[in-house]
Design a protein around this nucleic acid. Structure first.
Lengths: 339, 339
DNA sequence: CTGTTAGCGCATTCAA
DNA sequence: TTGAATGCGCTAACAG
């Protein structure tokens, strides 16, 4: 059942049927309702988006290109808050959301179905992404692409402020647990591996942390640095466990975690080992995810509004606001895990 | 830059260029590479999916029609686990995922871009949905649509088993907190309102709970029934607070919650009021979400594998398995909230 | 192995 | 106010 067959059945031209749907001003109200009713009766559900898309060049679809695969992204609080923000904005403006996994193969180019693309997070090769975008309107989140406006937070500054707070109280030994600071090593890493690492979001957070130590006259090289590959509870367990199971002089009493998920896992595992937070171990996170603020001890962290990031990026893409790069504010949340 | 212009530039026909991309066996290896390289050099990124879609009738897109709006669904653990399951399966088979909000307006018919549709959860008017599907391949999850195979769990049986467990230990007073059992009332509701309610997933859970009471010779009408509209922490707070703030004879010491989110909120609020779980208040949930199993007290609940539901539905849609309705197993999880 | 032709379903000229 | 013609970008028959 196509527009054409409907037109034939009704004895009018295809144009008239098309107009009935898309340009009410082009035909009389009675004629329009007549046609719509008849089409409905024939079981025609309206113009097919495929044909319309090819003709008009617009699909009403916005693609969200994620850094990881879809299932990982959907399970990550930060990413899914962001997706929700994008979705919220699109919902309100009659656009559909297409989720695209980061490492898309050569062929998987459903991208060109989209009117615009939001690129989230780090993607290996910027040139590859730009080619993929192919002059389509685009907005970046947590990523800088030449010619593409983006939404950011200041990870360095937020991390610096948070760590300054953590260092106000004395500690015996500190450890930092980062996320994807290097691909080479998991667990305890050395600074050489780090130097080779890319300029990721967590890297900027780390730089803020280290700056706070430098300000406090502490040699950054003296600090144990641990690395985790996946920002999930299960992904964090081995490294955190190894860290906590160190004999006492080595075991830290201050743990700077570069994400809330890491910090929450650390709280879990610490408590399971009979350690009291913050008495035996102070812990900071980063992100401000809901779970961390609900449970007790409430997490000391930096809140970034991922939903707002998604909303803003979507709004920029839909031309609801100026298409220029923005840095959103973050908020220091002093919880009970590191008072 | 289209396939046609590329062909002109290279002095070959459009078919040959198309074949170079889609049917390697239709031309010599050297010619193919020659064409691909030249096209690449011209800045052509491969056949546009819009044209291809119109021509072949297939888009490589699977639509997931959710019961609520996108942002709500993405923030709900159960729904987002399910989405992740779908995504995982699609990832592996080179399909893209399009998320569609439940209450889509007349116009928002991006549905017909999809090769197939997964319908999740309750949708008001079945006829409307069927019309929307328009003979497209479809699979339901937690919903029965005539002619559409579906994936279910046995909410009644699982709920019955869980409640039987809960009733093994003596209690003074019980309350049930349900989700969307009726639209009319929020908070404490009466059974008349309930009778008018639809046959939702939580309604089947409720029936299982009530059956367990009947088996224990307890009049179901004597049990306080509370209703909540939104399965979020904030959405649960008012009702749970009202429930817990009742003076002692009325305040329950056994709380049957029809979702884990409700149960977790109840644990939070109870502990904030100085009540110990399970000593002062035993609590059961439903769903088995990760958060409930990580935190302590560990939640007593029924685990349903939402990811598996999504995966299975996607597999059925992609014809990777038999297209027939399936009921997945659930697992009783005896945690510390109701030992 | 390559080119010619046709048409997927639609919206938009332009002419009536 | 309506209709006939055109082409969006592509691929599948078919003929060379």
């Amino acid at each position: 059942m196509t527009l054409k067959t409907v037109a034939q059945q009704l004895g009018v031209s295809a144009t008239t049927v098309s107009n009935a749907y898309n340009r009410p001003d082009q035909l009389s109200e009675t004629r329009r309702e007549e046609i719509l009713a008849a089409a409905e009766a024939l079981g025609y559900t309206g113009p097919d988006s495929r044909g319309r898309m090819l003709r008009t060049g617009r699909s009403g679809i916005v693609a969200l290109l994620l850094a990881d695969n879809l299932s990982y992204s959907l399970r990550d609080s930060v990413a899914s808050e962001l997706i929700a923000g994008v979705a919220e904005q699109l919902d309100q403006h009659d656009h559909s959301l297409m989720l695209l996994p980061g490492r898309l193969e050569e062929g998987a180019g459903s991208v060109d179905m989209a009117d615009g693309v939001i690129v989230y997070g780090l993607h290996g090769d910027a040139r590859r992404i730009l080619k993929l975008l192919d002059d389509r309107p685009a907005v970046g989140i947590d990523i800088d692409l030449p010619g593409v406006p983006s939404v950011h937070i200041d990870n360095y500054r937020a991390s610096l402020a948070l760590t300054r707070h953590a260092l106000r109280r004395p500690y015996r030994r500190v450890a930092i647990v980062g996320l994807r600071l290097t691909r080479a090593q998991q667990g305890l890493i050395d600074s050489e591996a780090l130097l080779a690492s890319e300029l990721t979001v967590t890297r900027r957070r780390l730089d803020g942390v280290l700056q706070a130590f430098i300000e406090a006259d502490i040699d950054p090289h003296s600090i144990a640095l641990w690395n985790i590959d996946r920002n999930t509870h299960d992904g964090c367990v081995p490294t955190i466990a190894a860290l906590l199971d160190q004999p006492l002089p080595a075991r830290p009493d201050l743990l700077i975690c570069l994400s809330d998920r890491i910090a929450l896992t650390a709280i879990d595992l610490a408590e399971r080992r009979g350690l009291k937070v913050p008495r035996d171990l102070r812990i900071t996170g980063f992100d401000g995810i809901a779970e961390g603020q609900r449970r007790r001890p409430r997490l000391t962290t930096v809140r970034q509004d991922s939903t707002a990031k998604g909303r803003l990026a979507a709004a920029m893409l839909l031309d609801l606001g100026p298409r220029r790069s923005r840095t959103l504010e973050t908020e220091l949340l002093i919880g009970d895990s590191a008072p």
